[in-house]
């Protein structure tokens, strides 16, 4: 561990400056009231847990306080890409 995480704004910083935010691209539902209990529970409680590339959210909490997304390999900890909120998930080989 002790990753060097490249904040899209501040550049590489020690992981201790960051706050982990779980899986990326899990949007707050447009209209929660329209969802069944099961659909709502899926939003609340279900997340992917892949071995390999994982798009996840990080916040540079001890720095610029920006949230961003990272593509991290959960097996090797390599961060293949970081991208700002709103940007599409980059395609990696």
């Amino acid at each position: 561990m002790m990753l060097l995480i490249p904040c899209p704004w501040c550049g590489p910083r020690d992981e201790a400056e960051f706050h982990y935010g779980g899986q990326a691209h899990v949007a707050y539902p447009e209209n929660p009231a329209a969802l069944s209990d099961e659909e709502w529970a899926r939003y609340l409680f279900f997340r992917d847990n892949p071995k390999g590339a994982f798009a996840e959210r990080w916040s540079h909490s001890a720095g610029c306080r920006r949230w961003f997304n990272a593509l991290r390999d959960t097996a090797t900890n390599e961060i293949h890409a970081v991208y700002r909120v709103g940007e599409p998930r980059p395609v990696t080989s």
Binding site: H19, A27, R57, S59, S61, R65, W67
Partner: peptide
């Protein structure tokens, strides 16, 4: 404050 920033930045920009 982090919570507020999270919603502002990621859900409701």
């Amino acid at each position: 404050l982090d919570w507020m920033e999270e919603w502002l930045q990621t859900e409701w920009p």
